[in-house]
Amino acid sequence: MEQKKLTCICCPLGCQIIVELENGEVISVSGNTCKRGEDYAGKEVIAPTRIVTSTVKVIGGSAPTVSVKTKADISKNKIFDCIRALKEVEVQAPIKIGDIILSNVVDTGVDIVATKGVEVI
């Protein structure tokens, strides 16, 4: 049996939650105060995901960079691969908010989209 400890992020209480796992499945959650903590801990220990935000270089735009995000959350262990992939990207202005900057980033099936518009200079 495996035990994982984590801090709940659902509210300022920040419960220290202990999750017991067996063969990759949650068998018990303790230390939480409410149902939200139980749900959060279950997901967080099995398959933690995050929205990743960063910037990429812009060519010929009114700003040197444009802010971007993963359109959906991706696996937490792919965060650094995702950031590395974005370092290689340069986009030509103009850019509209929501434009796809990079498709299927590091084979996550998730696109990188612009979160801001950039005009041509």
Binding site: S54, T55, T115
Partner: peptide, 19 residues
């Protein structure tokens, strides 16, 4: 503020600052 987490109360979704 290019990170996400804005607008949960207003738009019921997590937006980045510029969005």
């Amino acid at each position: 503020c290019i990170h996400n987490g804005f607008g949960l109360h207003t738009f019921k979704e997590e937006l980045t600052g510029p969005e």
